[in-house]
Computed example of a mutant assay.
Amino acid sequence: MKKTITLLLVILGITFSSAQENDNPEFTGENFSLEGALDLFKKANSLENFEELLNQESNNVNNLDLNNDGNIDYINVDDIKENDTHVIVLSTFLSKTEKQDIATVGIEKTGNEEATLQIEGDQDLYAENTIAEPYDVSEKMNQGKGGPSLSEIISTRIIVNVWFWPSVRYIYAPRYVAWKSPHRFGFYPRWWKPWRPFRYATFYTRAAPHRVYYHRTPICRLVIVRKVYAPRRNHSTIVIHKNNHKTVVLKSNNRSEKYQKSKRKPNVKVVKVSKNRRR
């Protein structure tokens, strides 16, 4: 009987330990719901309103603590506008001098009253080409040759025209001026109340409703967006890569080395720099 109890405790211990390890996502960016961000963008009536929605705990979109201070990071929203293309950059300040991009909501006007939208996670935080987009389903009846009994309904996903979303109409208004968040590290709006991050398993469950109407796709439909955004991307100066329980610190003065190693898909975590690094 004692041997049975001992064996049971060992099994439970292994299971609990395994559950703790699996509670961490493979990529740090998964603590920010790309699908949830799109859901809030659809509901927002302006980019200022979008930023406010992103930073509310009840919306279950943000679970990031990139500077390891024990509190959720404040998400800034900035718009890069070039002709009929908009790149809505979601980022956070890690310190007074460090800023890390999290994701970009790209929008391209494709017709008189047509626009296409995708959100892409930053390469330091997500796997390569982590893209999400809204989708709808088109259904049609396929009439078989053998009569009605052999008919079937074929469902296909279609690209959503986001032109009539309030936030999209807002940024394409004639007098619109590209929005830039007025908030910085240590200077946040009075209404903002940071909270402690949830365990990843808890956050994943809380964010589940956002994944109903938005899905991941490996296809980038917005080529112009990438060209507009690339030279303006923000990334932190120190990124810690945790791989096989080893910690390797890579400094940004060798950017090619950092990007080459990041393609190995380690779990990426950005940490706050405590020392003054001015030279």
Score class of each variant (00 low, 15 high):
residue 119 I to P: 01
residue 13 G to W: 05
residue 59 N to K: 12
residue 269 K to N: 12
residue 255 R to Q: 14
residue 278 R to D: 15
residue 92 T to P: 00
residue 136 D to I: 10
residue 177 V to G: 06
residue 238 I to E: 14
residue 269 K to C: 08
residue 260 Q to K: 04
residue 239 V to R: 02
residue 69 D to G: 08
residue 76 N to S: 15
residue 268 V to I: 13
residue 107 I to N: 06
residue 168 V to C: 06
residue 86 H to A: 05
residue 56 Q to P: 02
residue 129 N to W: 06
residue 83 N to K: 10
residue 88 I to Y: 02
residue 78 D to L: 02
residue 172 Y to R: 02
residue 30 E to R: 11
residue 185 F to P: 02
residue 10 V to F: 14
residue 145 K to S: 15
residue 35 E to D: 10
residue 165 W to V: 00
residue 64 L to V: 08
residue 148 P to R: 15
residue 81 K to G: 04
residue 227 K to R: 09
residue 235 H to M: 07
residue 151 S to D: 15
residue 176 Y to Q: 04
residue 125 L to I: 06
residue 54 L to P: 03
residue 122 D to Q: 04
residue 66 L to A: 11
residue 58 S to A: 15
residue 6 T to G: 02
residue 27 F to M: 04
residue 204 Y to F: 13
residue 182 P to T: 05
residue 50 F to I: 03
residue 237 T to M: 13
residue 55 N to Q: 03
residue 228 V to D: 01
residue 14 I to Q: 04
residue 177 V to D: 13
residue 5 I to P: 02
residue 278 R to N: 14
residue 278 R to L: 14
residue 277 R to K: 10
residue 269 K to F: 11
residue 62 N to W: 12
residue 132 A to D: 01
residue 151 S to F: 14
residue 85 T to P: 05
residue 258 K to H: 07
residue 105 V to M: 06
residue 63 N to W: 07
residue 161 N to L: 05
residue 94 L to E: 08
